[in-house]
Structures are given as C-alpha cells and as structure tokens.
Nucleic acid binder design. Structure first.
Lengths: 347, 347
DNA sequence: CTGAAAGCGCTTACAG
DNA sequence: CTGAAAGCGCTTACAG
C-alpha cells in the first residue's frame, strides 16, 4: 500500500506533466537493435519479418509496455478503428440494446464505438453525423430521421449502415415487422375485437409508416377496421396526452408505435378509471426494459434490437474489410408477438 | 433529386476511394495567399493574427468547407478533445442519465464522449480504462468497481473524475445519501415498521457500503433494527432470486441497493402471493426509468444521476483547462425520498 | 504579425 | 527481409 497523496499537486495551469513520455516504436527499435520501420512491420504484419526479429521486437515492446499511438497511426492510414453510432434519443430504452449490441460487437473486433444522439431532430442528426464523419471509419444510423438522400450523401463519404429503415443503395438492417404484426392482429381478432387504432410515431420515422402498412394489411386479412391517430412525441408523456383522443375514438384495441406510448397511454387511461384490458386492449412495439413491469404487463411486438445492433455492426465491419459495398436487400431479422396481460377480449 | 445509384460500386477490396481528399490547411493557405502556419493561427488563436488575414483565412476555409483533421491535431498537441466514460453495465438504467448528462455536457463544450462498460468486473474495468487512456484527455469512472489504489494509478496518468464513490486524492461526485435515507427510514418508522432489511449490492460497490452505513445510522436514530442480506447481482433477476430469503427473514420492510433489485423482489413476492406493501414494504434506490411502472409503483430514494453526469463532466473539463487538480472534498449532490405505493404501514 | 522549419508517432513505397 | 526516407495534417518555437 503506497502513499496515496502524490497526485495532489496543485499548481498553476499548464503544468500538467503527468504522463511521462509514452514509449514509441523508436524506443523499441533502439532496444531491439532494428529500424523503426521493421518494428512497425513486426507489430502489424508479423509475416513480413523473420521469426527472429519478430521475437526481438515483441520482447522489446513488452518490456517497454508499448502501446501504439492511435492518432499517429490514423494519420497516414486514414483508418481510425472507431465506429460511430447515432440514435434519436439516448434515454429511449429501445436504443439501449442496439447500443449494447453494437458496442460489444465493435469491441470484440478491436473497434471503439462513439455514440451520439439527435434528440429526434433531423437537422441535429445531420450535424452530429457530419461532425463524426471525420473521426470514424464508418457510421451506424439507428432509426434515422433524416431524408433518404441525405443518408445517401453520407454513405457517399464513409460506409454507412442503417437500422430500422430500408433505404436503397445503403446497407440496412430492418426487422421484418409483418410476422409480429400479423400475430398481434390475429390475436386481437381472435379475441373478438372488431377494429384497431394505430397510434403513429414521428413523421420522420420510416418504421412508423412501415408498421402502419403492416397493420392495415393484417387488418384487411382479418377483416378488422384499422384507423390511425398521430402522436406528437413517442414517449411515456406523449402516450399520456393521447388518452382523451383514444377514448373519443371509442375503440376496443390500440396498437402503438412503441412501448413508451403504450405505457403512458395505459397509465393515463387507468388513472381515468378505464380498465385495461377489459375496456381497451393495448399492444406496444419493441418489448423494452420495463414493458413487463406494468400492471397488466404489456403485450407487445418484440423487435430483436440487440441483434440489430450486432448485425449492423458486423455488416459495417465487413464493408470496412472490403468484403462488399452494398447488399441488394436489407438484412432481415424477425419479430414476434409477446402476449401479456394488456390485451384480452373486450368487455 | 439526383440519381441514387452512384454508391453501389462493387469492386474488389482496397478500392475504396470514396472520400475525395479532404481540404487541408495548405489548401486554405494557397487560396488565401498566406503560410499554413498563419492559417493554423488564424483558426485557433484568431487574436494572434491581423483582422484582415483572419478574414482572408476564414473565407477560404469556408469556401473549401474545411474541417480540421482531428488526428493530425492530436498528434503534436497530445490533446484529443474526447472524454471517456466507463460504467459497470450499459443496460442498467441507473447509468442512462449519467451517460446522457455527461454526453450533453461534453458535446456542449466541443468534446466527444466515448463510452465503455466493465460488465461489473473490476479486471475488465481496468482493461477498458487502460485501453481508453491513450485516446482520451480524461476519464469519468461511474460507480467504479476497481480498488482505490488502481483509481489513483489511473489518475496519475490522466485526469480522472469518479462518480458514486469517494476516493481521496481524486475528484469525486457523490450523492449525499444520508438525507434521502433518513427520509426513507423515518417514513417507515412512522408507518409502524420495527425493523428494516437491507439488500446489499456488489461487494465492490462503494456506494452499497455507504448506503448500508446510512441505513444503520438512520435506524439507530429511529430505533429500528437494521439487518442485511447479500445479493449476487444487482439486477431484476437477482432481486427475484432473493424473495425466498426475504420471506425467511420475516421482516416487514426491505430497502434494496437499487431499484432493479427492488422490482425483481417485488415481482417474485407478488407471484408467491405476498402482498406489497401490506405484508412487506419495499424501498429502492435511484428512481430509474420504469420505477413508477410497477404496481404498486416503487418508493425509492432518488439520486440525481443526471446531475452527477453533468457535474462530473464539468469538473473534468475544468481540470483539463488547468483550473485545479483535485478538490479537497467530493462535490455533493442531494438525494430525496420519492414516496410511492410500495411502502406503507404493515398489516 | 508572419514565414520557414522541425516535429508529433506512425506507415509504406522504394531500394538493396 | 530490412533500412532509409518521405509523408500523413497539424502545431509551435524560432526568426525576422
């Protein structure tokens, strides 16, 4: 146990000499008795060097506790070994597992992940994307709110992978919502509901539109009437504010753009004395953390968000490795209905 | 609307010439008719240059849509304009607001935030911290699991700010739990409870110990009996697994290390037919997202996690600016009891 | 105030 | 296989 006081060196600004000079390849070169360029090769392309020199270099590097300077390497190569991930809202639980999936995948391949959020604003999204572009090798756009052409623009500068949206000419990972939706609508139809109200998400959300299409198709098939209501913000609070309109609509079943809306709606309806699911059934999307905390627990169409993060990152890494540019079709991942207590026969 | 096909150029690896050469200060210099070093000064220290040349340079830079190369700048200066944030578990909602607070604060000051998680492992924590060290200007350790001396080691190399732990010689931001705890315990005592069971968090969690101390002190004051139970993992699942032990303990009031444990415990107790709060009151810590989704909604001691993120980042930035090294005391932030339905008089 | 030069730590043709 | 050299894009003493 050594004295723990050495750090406290209160001095004027600019005196921070803490980091003793980190060892460079020149230090290794000197110690190993070879040229710096040989050190570089031994460390990065071990097969372009004698087994003997490699050993020499490795020993010297270990002895000096050498760590490559990230920036010095990025300068001549242009490669940064970091990936950017942009999400609409860091506090939206939907993105947590995307973040984690992307983070672990990136880390496993030696990449660093840099996170940014657009706070649901298309303009902000473009700004942070552009800012990122200079310091990453590629970027993942999760549920982008900007336009297709802007995405294409970005993709023209650095490799881009999009999650939760299908844009032609760019690699995409998009859950196939039809399966989950069809399960949900059939379940409602089977329970005796005659109509379904869809509460839409942000206009800019491609996925919100996609879900609406799926719901219409499934309702047609099951001979249910589908109607639609807009929401301002896809949050719990946003859901609460919709309770009155939902009541006015007089439906027995609601499907919301996401779980946040569903939870807020349910809370507010219950606070107003409306019984869920007896009077109104509620189905969400995503199966976020907390969706099963509610009472009744939320029925929802689960998206494999973690897998989306993993696959998007994997694809981006492949693209960086030069495997290919753009796949012809979006990488599909499945969705499924998680039947819980918030949906049931009406009355 | 231009053709959206140009991106699709399927070729062999290594042919990726997408990024047309970005403009450099030399391009600006040529365009503005000055030396590159003057460009550098005009852009970074505008006051060390004539108003006229500054204008010249700015115009040229704007025309070329110049963006400084992050890496080229970091090389000679050693400054990266990025901050590291290490959390124990990315999927633990407790950290969400820390992340957001840190993220927005960093962004507002022109810094990039890089996120890493230790998955609750002290060794992993040290590994990711060391890996980060080379490419950030400073790091924020949220609820670190490593030892004090290791933290001091890190702080010896780069500025470090710790959240949720008080370690001497390092800048810390730690919520003052006593206020919230005392409110919670008094509330329980006032309701007629005679004893409180504390469900502890990970051994490595400084904050878990701190909360236990606070609970003991508050119980002494209110003449309640305090007892303690260990938990394996501070998650919902971990909370579920503790239900049996809690029942065996035969207490009427439980305070858990965090909300996750509280929620899991409540779910499992209820599943076993135990009534909350009638038979057992449950109080959590943190007031995470979803804490009010449960039924009954969770009573909890709220920590201002968002503010912790903001202040830790602010302090780190100050330290980087050379304002000072280490404050004598931890930056305090307050806690408070959020009284909801999961706690009430017994029986 | 401004220019010319050196250097940050690495990579990578180019010779040998 | 290995060395010597040039260059990545910036910053910063050093002169003038």
């Amino acid at each position: 146990m050594k004295e723990a006081t050495s750090v406290v060196e209160i001095e004027g600004p600019g005196r921070q000499k803490r980091a003793r000079q980190a060892p460079t390849i020149y230090d290794i070169a000197r110690l190993a008795g070879v040229n710096a360029s040989t050190v570089s090769r031994a460390l990065n392309n071990p097969d372009r060097v004698t087994a003997k020199t490699r050993k020499l270099v490795e020993v010297a590097a270990a002895e000096l506790n050498y760590k490559a300077n990230h920036f010095a390497r990025a300068l001549p190569t242009g490669k940064t070994q970091t990936l950017g991930l942009i999400v609409a809202d860091i506090t939206n639980p939907t993105f947590f597992d995307i973040i984690r999936g992307a983070g672990t995948t990136a880390a496993a391949r030696g990449y660093t992940l840099v996170l940014a959020e657009s706070t649901e604003s298309p303009a902000m999204e473009m700004t942070v994307a552009r800012r990122m572009l200079g310091s990453v090798d590629g970027v993942i756009l999760a549920s982008p709110r900007m336009g297709d052409d802007q995405i294409l623009d970005l993709a023209g500068e650095k490799p881009v992978v999009v999650i939760n949206r299908d844009v032609k000419g760019v690699n995409c990972v998009v859950p196939d919502v039809d399966r989950g939706i069809s399960q949900a609508v059939r379940s409602l139809a089977g329970q005796g509901h005659r109509s379904v109200l869809y509460i839409a998400g942000p206009e800019e959300s491609w996925m919100s539109g996609r879900r609406w299409e799926g719901i219409q198709a499934a309702c047609d098939w099951s001979r249910l009437v589908a109607s639609r209501l807009e929401s301002a913000t896809p949050t719990v609070e946003g859901g609460r504010r919709l309770a009155r309109d939902v009541l006015v609509a007089g439906v027995t079943a609601v499907i919301t753009y996401n779980d946040l809306l569903a939870i807020g709606l349910m809370q507010e309806l219950q606070a107003a004395g409306v019984r869920v699911p007896e009077t109104i059934s509620i189905v969400g999307f995503d199966d976020i953390f907390g969706a099963d905390f509610t009472s009744p627990p939320l029925t929802t169409v689960r998206s494999p968000v973690h897998e989306c993060g993993v696959r998007a990152t994997g694809r981006l890494l492949e693209e960086l490795a030069g495997a290919y540019k753009v796949a012809t079709a979006a990488l599909p991942v499945e969705t499924e209905l998680i039947l819980r207590g918030s949906s049931a026969p009406p009355n």
